[in-house]
Design a protein around this nucleic acid. Structure first.
Ligand code: SF4
Ligand code: SF4
Lengths: 137, 137
DNA sequence: TTCAATTACTACTCAAAGGTAGAATTTAAA
DNA sequence: TTTAAATTCTACCTTTGAGTAGTAATTGAA
């Protein structure tokens, strides 16, 4: 019951960049050191974040990454979907397939409240709701 | 953000056996067909459930499985822990390691409510809270 | 006693996540 | 113009979850 490492990394990177977007460009090397994420794995993830349009990259010497979309428009759920961290009904708690209020699994009644709260959180939280100056990176 | 298949299967099997414990013994073959779980994978899981003491097995012809612990004493969280579906703080949403109210990650404030509800649910729900006669298996 | 239905055990394959290696490309500073 | 610092691309390796195969051991029924 956990997010994928890639999702966690992506959230942390995007959050950091969003919090320092006025500043300047950050390179993969810096991000890797600041956020303590394996360099080679980070660059792989950055490539995906560029392709999906969350960030844009400046190539070459003195290059780096910067936010390409306003922080207020990047929802956590969008990041999760990018890395196959599904939160939809198809892959719900007992994974039984399509289900509704009449056709439900044994856990349904207990699960719906935590699940909907979780889903609501991922859907409504954007990067700029996350701004937290003293938080761990 | 999902339970492991093994956890899902284990919950469904244990729930079924708990709901039919008065009945009779159920064999792996039957369980596999009723619950639509691959036979060979199921027997592997049953072995683990026997070792951990949730169920006991009757070997040989006419054998099968039966609950070994009262349904009221089998918490979902115990099943999850058996299959490495951690819900503890070490492996929390951003996976940053030890953290408390002063030393927290950027998602902490948003995450704690859904998380604690989820955790409470897994900790307080036992197999006999789950009894649901018309539910999908 | 034989035999078929059953659990238990060991070892393997497959797929996906997590991570690494190396070289190509881009670009600004020296 | 050269060079070093950067992103990008392709391919690989490792680990773990998911699932399969085959066989041994057990035991009640015929
Ligand atoms: S909890 Fe509800 S929505 Fe989720 S699998 Fe069970 S029945 Fe379906
Ligand atoms: S949400 Fe809170 S407990 Fe979980 S990783 Fe973040 S700081 Fe730690």
């Amino acid at each position: 019951m956990q997010l994928h490492n890639t999702s966690q990394y992506a959230i942390r990177v995007l959050n950091f960049i969003a919090n320092h977007s006025d500043d300047r460009l950050y390179s993969a090397k810096e991000l890797s050191e600041i956020l303590n994420i394996p360099y080679k794995f980070l660059t792989k993830i950055m490539g995906i974040l560029v392709k999906t349009g969350f960030i844009s990259s400046i190539q070459g010497r003195e290059g780096g990454y910067e936010l390409n979309t306003p922080a207020s428009e990047i929802k956590l759920i969008d990041i999760l979907n990018t890395f196959n961290d599904e939160t939809d009904n198809e892959s719900c708690v007992l994974g039984i397939g399509i289900c509704d209020s009449v056709n439900k699994c044994a856990l349904h009644d207990q699960w719906m409240e935590p699940k909907s709260l979780m889903r609501k959180m991922f859907e409504e939280t954007t990067l700029n709701n996350l701004t937290c100056k003293d938080c761990k990176l």
